[in-house]
Amino acid sequence: MTQLVTGKKTRFATAWLGGCSGCHMSLLDLDERLIELFQAADLLYSPIADIKEFPQQVDVTLVEGAVANVDHLELARQIRERSLIVVSFGDCAVTGNVTSLRNRLKVDDLLSMVYREGPGREPRGLEGDGILPALIPRVLPLHQVIAVDAFIPGCPPDPDAIWEAVSALLHGAPVRLKQEMRYFG
């Protein structure tokens, strides 16, 4: 795994693909350790910060959520190109988890069920209406789309597990979670 040069502030980012944002909630549950984190790192991109473009050079990016549509694909590609270390953050990114439960259905059937025949006021999600990014045929875990350097399983991962991983990364060390922090689910 690529190792960080320690001694200067880490350029840090988090991203949110196909997931429920629960992993980000768990990240916020780091509580006072957040202060310690942002003393060592600058947050350059995150769903909790209003930044539109993924920045050019990032040291560590935590990615929540599975890859489910073309926007996710594009963001995943950018993240990989622009980050030194990419971390699969939470079960959706690691396994596909609940997001991937739609894999047993065809995309078209899914769209019909949810949108065209769904309970909304008017039909939405039709081709070319520009509301939904196109869904890819199968939801994929992040590492099946781009190379991933470390994994933090859990739905959501425990704040302690997140801290264990993040503090290791900030110190330029590889992520080695203890057994009780490695559980899926």
Binding site: V70, A134, I146
Partner: peptide, 17 residues
């Protein structure tokens, strides 16, 4: 390959239209 699926979807959509 998975990473190129987006571009492929677009290309196919364009060719069908």
């Amino acid at each position: 390959p998975p990473l190129e699926q987006g571009a492929d979807l677009q290309r196919r959509a364009r060719s069908t239209t």
